[in-house]
Amino acid sequence: MTKEVIVIGAGIIGASIAWHLSRAGALVTVIADSGAGGVATPNSFAWINASWGNPETYFRLRVRAMAEWKRLAKDLPGLPLAWCGGLCFDLPADRLEAYAAEHSAWGYGIERVGREQAALIEPNLAELPDFAMYVAEEGVAEPVAAAKALLGDAERRGARIVTGTVGALAISGDRVTGVVVSGEAIAADEVVVAAGAGVPAIAATAGIKLPIETPPGLIVHSRPYEKLLNGLVLGDRLHMRQTAEGRIIAGSDFGGGDPGVDATATARDLFAATKAMLRGAEGLELDFHTVGYRPTPIDGFPIIGRAEGVDGLYIAVTHSGVTLAPAVGLFATREILDGERDALLAPYGLGRFAQ
Rank of each mutant, 00 (worst) to 15 (best):
residue 8 I to F: 07
residue 24 A to Y: 06
residue 140 V to R: 13
residue 18 A to C: 05
residue 304 I to Y: 11
residue 107 G to R: 13
residue 63 V to W: 10
residue 329 G to T: 03
residue 183 G to S: 07
residue 35 G to S: 04
residue 78 G to V: 05
residue 96 L to T: 13
residue 148 K to E: 14
residue 43 N to P: 08
residue 54 N to C: 14
residue 121 I to C: 14
residue 306 R to V: 11
residue 110 I to C: 11
residue 48 I to H: 10
residue 89 F to T: 11
residue 179 V to M: 03
residue 348 Y to H: 02
residue 72 L to P: 05
residue 93 A to K: 15
residue 197 A to H: 06
residue 306 R to G: 12
residue 191 V to S: 07
residue 341 R to L: 01
residue 221 H to R: 12
residue 205 T to H: 11
residue 132 A to F: 11
residue 143 P to E: 07
residue 327 A to W: 02
residue 83 W to F: 14
residue 312 G to N: 12
residue 50 A to S: 11
residue 59 F to Y: 13
residue 19 W to G: 05
residue 139 G to Y: 12
residue 76 L to T: 01
residue 105 A to P: 10
residue 340 E to Y: 11
residue 240 M to I: 00
residue 53 G to K: 13
residue 293 Y to D: 04
residue 201 A to L: 13
residue 202 I to H: 11
residue 316 A to V: 03
residue 14 G to A: 05
residue 164 G to M: 00
residue 153 D to R: 14
residue 298 I to G: 08
residue 51 S to A: 15
residue 190 E to M: 12
residue 251 G to C: 02
residue 179 V to W: 08
residue 104 S to I: 15
residue 135 V to Q: 13
residue 4 E to D: 14
residue 229 L to A: 02
residue 184 E to R: 13
residue 22 S to A: 09
residue 344 L to V: 01
residue 158 G to T: 04
residue 86 G to S: 15
residue 180 V to W: 00
residue 140 V to I: 14
residue 34 S to M: 10
